[in-house]
Design a protein around this nucleic acid. Structure first.
Lengths: 119, 119
DNA sequence: CGGTATCCCTTCGGATACTG
DNA sequence: CAGTATCCGAAGGGATACCG
């Protein structure tokens, strides 16, 4: 029997799904991805509604997962920049099918300007 | 400037990400998808560890999202079967890139038998 | 500027017992 | 068999004040 042909298992997702599913994760990945790099206070403004403590803990978690990287510059005033790692950029690509799937919900009206979803 | 060319927005994910990110969602979708259809008590066994109340609430949420459908048969003893909708099947396909992404984590060892991830 | 510390509320989800 | 009802602990995440 070849009923394995379209059997999917989810073990690769173990652990990481808990990170990805969190309220701010994809928004954060996306915001950084769209800008190239961002600073802590930029993110605090752009992600309207996130609290400083939540942002700080998310940034740490995403670093731990190898999705973003943090670079601190020795300046006054201090400057810290967050960027996507290679793996983080790949994540951003990997969710596009999911975005397209979500877009196809009957009542969804596109009000964004995302070339990757246009067709 | 054409910096929009690879700008991604996540508005399609509004709402649905909270469902997808929940602990049991993808496991449930997958389990039903792999079997074709399953009954409440089957799911209770297969998804080792899920509690009856959690399962019930997840099943309702996934129905509301149009991902699974419920069919009740008028028999004694009662029989109820859950299957994926067309949209649910599409979801299952849409997350494969995410699975492949997760698989590429340096330390991940494949111990499943999923033909869709084999190459 | 880039965070911590503290407090607090809500939601998630497990355990168990019960029901139509 | 297919769920509900009740109770509960743990985790997510917001508000605010403060720190190096």
């Amino acid at each position: 029997m070849n009923h394995h042909s379209n059997v999917v298992c989810l073990c690769p997702l173990d652990g990481i799904i808990e990170t990805i599913g969190k309220k701010w994760t994809m928004l954060l990945v996306n915001e950084i991805g769209n800008h190239g790099s961002l600073r802590y206070n930029n993110l605090l403004e752009e992600l309207k509604g996130i609290s400083p403590s939540t942002l700080a803990s998310m940034l740490k978690e995403l670093q731990k997962e190898g999705i973003i990287s943090r670079e601190a510059f020795n300046e006054i005033p201090p400057r810290v920049e967050y960027t996507l790692t290679k793996r983080g950029k790949e994540l951003r690509i990997a969710i596009i099918p999911l975005l397209k799937w979500a877009t196809k919900k009957g009542n969804f009206k596109m009000h964004c300007n995302c070339s990757l979803l246009k067709k």
